[in-house]
Design a binder for these strands. Sequence first.
DNA 1: GCCAACGTTGGC
DNA 2: GCCAACGTTGGC
Length: 140
Amino acid sequence: MAYWLYKSEPFKWSWDQQVAAGAQGTFWDGVRNHSAKLNLLAMRVGDRGFFYHSNEGKAVVGIVEVIREAYPDPSAEPGEPWVVVDVRAGEALPRPVTLADVKAEPRLAEMALLKYSRLSVQPVTEAEWGIVCRMGGLGG
DNA sequence: GCCAACGTTGGC
DNA sequence: GCCAACGTTGGC
């Protein structure tokens, strides 16, 4: 099982909207970056990821689970290489973990969130996953 | 193939 | 609103 982090501006697609989408989930669209695309292609059903609000909020607010592996992005032009995965909302974090919280935790200094701040879909290591979950009030 | 210009993202 | 990072584009 691998771990990921998905960034979304909350006024485009928010955690509340993801929760409202329910168990059937939604596709994660709009990725137009090749590094992010490679991450989408590497995802497997059951992988979990953090839902991060960029710009407004700037915090990890919840957890999503991959329920369908990569397939062509319905919002892309025919012939373009972009893909989506389907995700559904899991637990919300009892305490959102803010960007400032991440920066203040030395064990998270290597997180892609800090090192590749513009990458919209990022890998998260198992260690980082556990640390952020505990900071957010989940068991891990 | 190099590199400057430009657009986008996202933190501040 | 500003600016740094970085990907893309286009002239040469």
